[in-house]
Design a protein around this nucleic acid. Sequence first.
DNA 1: ATCTTATATTCCTGTATCGGAATATGTCAA
DNA 2: TTGACATATTCCGATACAGGAATATAAGAT
Lengths: 113, 113
Amino acid sequence: MPRSATTSDVFNAIAEPRRREILDVLIAGEKAVGSIVDDVSLSQPQVSKHLRVLSEVGLVRCRAEGRRRLYSLEPAQLRPMHDWLAKYEQALAERLDRMDDYLKELQRQGDTQ
Amino acid sequence: MPRSATTSDVFNAIAEPRRREILDVLIAGEKAVGSIVDDVSLSQPQVSKHLRVLSEVGLVRCRAEGRRRLYSLEPAQLRPMHDWLAKYEQALAERLDRMDDYLKELQRQGDTQ
DNA sequence: ATCTTATATTCCTGTATCGGAATATGTCAA
DNA sequence: TTGACATATTCCGATACAGGAATATAAGAT
């Protein structure tokens, strides 16, 4: 069995650095494909292909204006990543809390002796 | 040129669902390989291989105890993801703010007419 | 020493992918 | 209609990977 498809979920879609770069460029707002090509150092076909992947996982939206296609972010789709990450931040925080408790306990014992 | 190596960065390492599953299991705390194998439905060699990848990107740490190897989370390494995500949450928030301003402007115009 | 337990590594194969080049599609202009 | 411009798609080749099976390493236990 090979690697998960790049379009299988948001995690796989953004694993590719070039696609993260494209998303970064779109933070500024809606952009045409040609404009994206100017910003990142990739050929136009490559940019179109990456945009296709991003589109399939819902991370970007596309709107036609004449012969140009304007792409924009759909940051709500990053929610699964955010939620997944949140679990670890909580775990990390709890671990730090326990460490803090432990240090306080050590200190308390030190005070009473 | 093929896909980025799974060990090239945290993004690629956690693209694999099985590796996320393993990390999820480790939230509860340090665990031996055999314990992880019991929790996820993967063979022991597969778990060891995935742990190797996670270890190479620094997401887990390993400690030997007798013939067992105890793995634990290193959630600080998720920071790059967190920082990358934060940009989009900010972008999303600003977009919502602009939307809010726009709606208020519409409402104001409605009031004065 | 031998056997069992715990984990890691190697070999194998099918498959999805990235980038390049070429080409197709579609839209505006004259 | 013909041509220029903007974007998408297809074909290609090389590469890395996930899982299975088998094996290697290493540490108790008897």
